[in-house]
Amino acid sequence: MKKIITMVISVITLSSCEKEIELDLNSSNSKYVIEGEMPQNELATVKITKTVNFSDLNNFPIVKGAIVTITDEIGTTEQLIETSTGIYKTQKLKGGEGKTYTLSVKADGNTFTAKSTMPKAVKLTGLKISLSSFAPPGAFSSDNYIVFPQFIDPPQLGNSYRFIQTRNGELDKSIIIANDNIGNGQPNSRFIFSQNFDIKLGDEVTVEMRCIDVPVYDYFFSLNSIQGNGPGGGTTPSNPVSNISGGALGYFSAFTVQKVSAVVK
């Protein structure tokens, strides 16, 4: 919506101008940022960093020496090993379908906890690729392709998905999520909508489908939608809804993993 509004505005005004400005922004106390992932049948990884002020360089401090543990449903706790600075990994514990995991992070006297449940996997059967009808301004027809992941949503409401897309090995960094508020219990008919990631004839596309739980969906949904700024279709920005308690930013997600590749032809 924001992009559309920007386009409309530029059309109406015929010219709008953009420039970089100096702003005296408030500074804030540095906060912990936790990205915890527990993939299906794989070891868990937790990355811990910190925030910096807006005017600082994009060097985000890495948090070393934290005590990170993951506990499964039956009470088995494993402390994660710092395999490289700021990256903590389990050695034995792997994610399992339908199981709930509790993450605990202790760093410099702070304790953060989070819980995530890996949903049952929904079978990804393949990819359907078709020509996009969205022609960019100036073009009579589009030469971009869009990708429809093929799966059937289970009947109960609340299934949530995250997709990771690569094109010839290059990762699409945008956040692609879906849930079954639309089309509950139906075969999927929605394509992956990603800006600035054009797929052309001959490209090899790989889509990884992750079944995620609702709090993690909410995290990514809000991360996507509330990072807008100011008027012109932007929402009032705020921090995404996190499933981590204790005041840290980020998320902890246990998710299923399936991958399918196809060549556009």
Binding site: L25, K31, V33, T51, F54, N58, N229, T236, L249
Partner: peptide, 11 residues
């Protein structure tokens, strides 16, 4: 207006 008072990295 709400402007950021810091930044971090996710994904």
């Amino acid at each position: 207006v709400t402007f950021p008072s810091g930044k971090y990295e996710v994904g």
